[in-house]
Amino acid sequence: MSVFDFHARLVPGGDGRLLQAMDRAGIDRAAVSAGGLIGLDELSVQITYGGRVETPADNSAVAQACERSGGRLLPFYFADPRRDVDAYRKEAEHFRGLEISPAVHGFRLDEPAVAELVAIAAAMRHPVYVVTTGRPGCRPADLARLAFEFPQAVLVWGHCGHTGLEMAGLAELAPLSNVVAELSGCLTVTARTAIDRLGAGRVLFGTEFPLQHPAVELAKCAALGLEPADRDRVLRTNACRLLGEDTTW
């Protein structure tokens, strides 16, 4: 079965390593965002206590690597809402989606610049990838309010939250049909619950490469015991639909 990884990270010059990992795991395509902006020790602190990094994402390098990939890699623009609104507006046509990260850039989801970015993404038909945290303004309820405010935008809830066991967040987001859950990093029980509550048509396979080995996420999906049609939705066709890709490959 063909596989589309909806969330991997790419550092400058790292496309060869990513493509090799995809080949070994049997993953055909991947949506990629810039990586390497923050060390893992620092990120773990910011997830809990807040803070932001000033290192800019190398979105140009991501776009160039995707051009070299022959269609296997699709670029997402990784935006800092506090400085990248105009840049994303100018460059959006060269990308397939948008990522914003409260944990990395230290913003709240109710800031006006976030609304500006989401409005641009909606106009471009770009899905918006967001990982919520437990801090005020960055929680699943805040993502739910953003989804309600922008029903024309597709918001992808990365990792099904930041704890691996975000059941309350699933309950809050399930009624919003424009919210889609991405499974990388969450527990098997959370992945199963996401499919039960949202339906297989609103769930995406992702790896969070290079932080997670692709084989781990593939094994997790295999352990869910999905019917073939639902497994194909999660592993491939949902991503194709959101990104405007042909589903016949």
Rank of each mutant, 00 (worst) to 15 (best):
residue 230 D to C: 08
residue 123 A to H: 11
residue 38 I to W: 06
residue 147 A to W: 11
residue 123 A to P: 00
residue 231 R to Y: 13
residue 238 N to K: 04
residue 7 H to K: 14
residue 23 D to Y: 01
residue 237 T to W: 02
residue 107 F to L: 03
residue 153 A to P: 12
residue 56 P to W: 00
residue 76 F to K: 01
residue 138 C to A: 14
residue 238 N to L: 02
residue 149 E to A: 15
residue 87 A to Y: 00
residue 158 G to K: 11
residue 101 S to R: 09
residue 231 R to I: 00
residue 219 A to N: 14
residue 150 F to G: 03
residue 6 F to M: 10
residue 192 R to I: 09
residue 127 P to A: 12
residue 1 M to P: 10
residue 122 A to H: 05
residue 247 T to Q: 11
residue 244 G to D: 07
residue 18 L to S: 05
residue 233 R to L: 10
residue 97 G to D: 02
residue 159 H to Q: 13
residue 15 D to T: 11
residue 111 E to K: 04
residue 91 E to Y: 00
residue 151 P to S: 05
residue 30 A to H: 09
residue 95 F to V: 01
residue 179 V to Y: 07
residue 124 M to A: 12
residue 183 L to E: 03
residue 2 S to R: 14
residue 77 Y to M: 02
residue 67 E to G: 08
residue 152 Q to W: 02
residue 165 L to I: 10
residue 54 E to I: 05
residue 212 Q to H: 08
residue 185 G to A: 04
residue 128 V to Q: 07
residue 60 S to M: 01
residue 208 E to S: 13
residue 68 R to P: 04
residue 21 A to G: 05
residue 142 D to C: 12
residue 120 I to S: 11
residue 187 L to S: 15
residue 25 A to F: 04
residue 161 G to I: 13
residue 72 R to V: 13
residue 41 D to W: 07
residue 73 L to K: 04
residue 204 L to T: 10
residue 174 A to W: 07
residue 233 R to M: 13
residue 125 R to L: 05
residue 63 A to P: 07
residue 44 S to F: 03
residue 133 T to Q: 06
residue 242 L to I: 08
residue 143 L to D: 10
residue 20 Q to G: 01
residue 57 A to W: 03
residue 17 R to I: 05
residue 79 A to W: 05
residue 71 G to C: 01
residue 140 P to D: 07
residue 44 S to K: 15
residue 215 A to I: 00
residue 69 S to Y: 09
residue 105 H to A: 04
residue 131 V to L: 15
residue 100 I to L: 04
residue 221 C to K: 00
residue 16 G to C: 01
residue 247 T to H: 04
residue 97 G to H: 09
residue 138 C to Q: 15
residue 33 S to G: 08
residue 141 A to E: 15
residue 164 G to R: 12
residue 42 E to G: 13
